[in-house]
């Protein structure tokens, strides 16, 4: 579904991503774990076209994303939940969801009902301003908005950041459920344990390079991963 080959990205003179190759198959949850500053967000932003790559290939569903306008990428059914709960604070929950269907408003009402079914708390607060939601609810709204685009694949950037342990559990179970419905997921996380526990495969990113990759189960048992990311 998504294939990244030999990707290089830099910020001015700072070379942030060094020859990264990642493959995500149809229906998988693949996680990309790594410490703060490793370059995880940069990779996701480059996939969505918000950051320009220096070299390499990004192919999604047969389309060359490096040659696609960022605003058109969502029409290819690739959604992005950016890092840090980006919602529209002065719009209501419902208006936020409507913005998610911006690129493709067909079936928007039915899709919204689906989203409300998955997130009953959003339904209760549909007329409330999004800025007044709790952190967890805002994260759910951000995920709900991505679902409104009826994506085949979602890029998720640290959905668990800043949430209480209970909410972290909830958000991961939501990700799992979304995936069961047939949506492929590339998940970026610092919370390696949780991420690996729901993933099929995973990549470890260290200062812009992939150092370890394999089935998530293997990584959970990998000594290096245990030591560096699982605190064991």
């Amino acid at each position: 579904m998504l294939e990244i080959k030999e990707l290089n990205v830099s910020y001015g003179a700072v070379h942030a991503i060094h020859g990264v190759s990642i493959k995500v198959n149809d229906g998988e949850i693949v996680s990309l774990i790594g410490a703060n500053g490793a370059g995880k967000t940069t990779i996701l932003r480059t996939i969505s076209g918000l950051k320009k790559a220096d070299s390499g290939e990004i192919i999604f569903d047969g389309a060359d994303l490096r040659k696609t306008e960022p605003s058109k990428i969502i029409s290819l059914k690739l959604a992005h939940v950016p890092e840090g709960r980006h919602i529209f604070p002065d719009m209501t929950v419902e208006e936020n969801l409507e913005m998610g269907a911006y690129a493709d408003a067909t079936n928007a009402e039915a899709v919204m009902e689906d989203v409300y079914e998955r997130f009953p708390r959003l339904k209760e607060r549909r007329k409330q301003l999004a800025g007044t939601l709790s952190g967890g609810e805002q994260q759910m709204l951000a995920v709900g908005r991505a679902l409104m685009a009826q994506p085949k694949m979602i890029l998720m950037d640290e959905p668990s950041m800043g949430l209480s342990p209970l909410l972290v559990k909830e958000i991961f179970s939501i990700i799992k459920e979304v995936n069961k419905k047939g949506i492929t997921i590339l998940l970026v996380e610092q919370n390696a344990k949780m991420a690996l526990s729901i993933s099929d495969r995973a990549y470890v990113l260290e200062t812009g390079k992939i150092t370890i990759e394999g089935p998530a189960q293997d990584l959970l048992n990998d000594e290096r991963v245990k030591k560096a990311y699982l605190g064991q």
Binding site: S48, A79, M99, R145
Partner: peptide
């Protein structure tokens, strides 16, 4: 960022 993620140019 949310606007860009929603596919707004």
């Amino acid at each position: 960022i949310a606007a860009a993620a929603s596919g707004i140019n």
